[in-house]
């Protein structure tokens, strides 16, 4: 079986060959693994790599991917093909959008429809767990929509303010 798996921004191919009685072999890059694994309880895998101490592994599935915990380290492992499809459907390029960095509550909205903004102008202030973040205009332009109001929840990817870019020369 072939997997293309993404952790953070790092993508690697995994070649996985299951055998009888939970035995397996696998290769990622120049690293090879062989051993035996079983699932003693939900969310838990016990992995015995040949010639190494047993690894206790915990997992939890989400639509984004699989959370994996081993030896005090948590990793969100995603199917790289799927994540690519997801970003391209959304239009990609989150850095140019007015969206919060983490799930948050909107505490102030200064942007108004029709307002002309310069790059870096404050548009919305969100608060997450006692920390405040000011979301600014990613480029100069005119505000065409404000999709939120004070007290509403906002998630990363939600476009809170839409801006029609100004003519190129206004960027200086």
């Amino acid at each position: 079986m072939q997997y293309k798996l993404k952790i953070g921004e790092s993508i690697a191919n995994l070649e996985f060959t299951p055998a009888e009685k939970g035995r397996f072999s696998a290769r990622v890059g120049d690293e090879t693994f062989a051993g035996q694994a079983h699932a003693p309880q939900p969310h838990r895998l016990q992995v015995q790599l040949d010639g190494a101490p047993a690894l206790d592994v915990y997992t939890a599935s989400t639509p984004e991917g699989l959370w994996v915990w081993t030896q005090g380290r948590a990793r969100l492992v995603r199917d790289a093909e799927q994540t690519k499809r997801r970003t391209s459907r959304r239009g990609g390029g989150g850095a140019k959008e007015v969206t919060p960095p983490t799930p948050a509550t909107v505490v102030a909205v200064t942007a108004e429809v029709g307002q002309r903004v310069a790059k870096g102008d404050a548009l919305v202030v969100v608060s997450a767990m006692k920390m405040e973040f000011t979301l600014t205009a990613p480029y100069a332009g005119e505000v065409t929509a404000v999709n939120t109001k004070v007290g509403e929840k906002a998630n990363p990817g939600d476009i809170l303010v839409e801006i029609a870019p100004a003519e190129e020369q206004s960027d200086g």
Binding site: F24, A37, V47
Partner: peptide, 16 residues
């Protein structure tokens, strides 16, 4: 630790 996590992904798919 990343490759061990990738291995766990495949093991989860087959065992879990």
């Amino acid at each position: 630790a990343d490759n061990a996590a990738r291995l766990a992904y495949a093991l989860h798919e087959t065992l879990a």
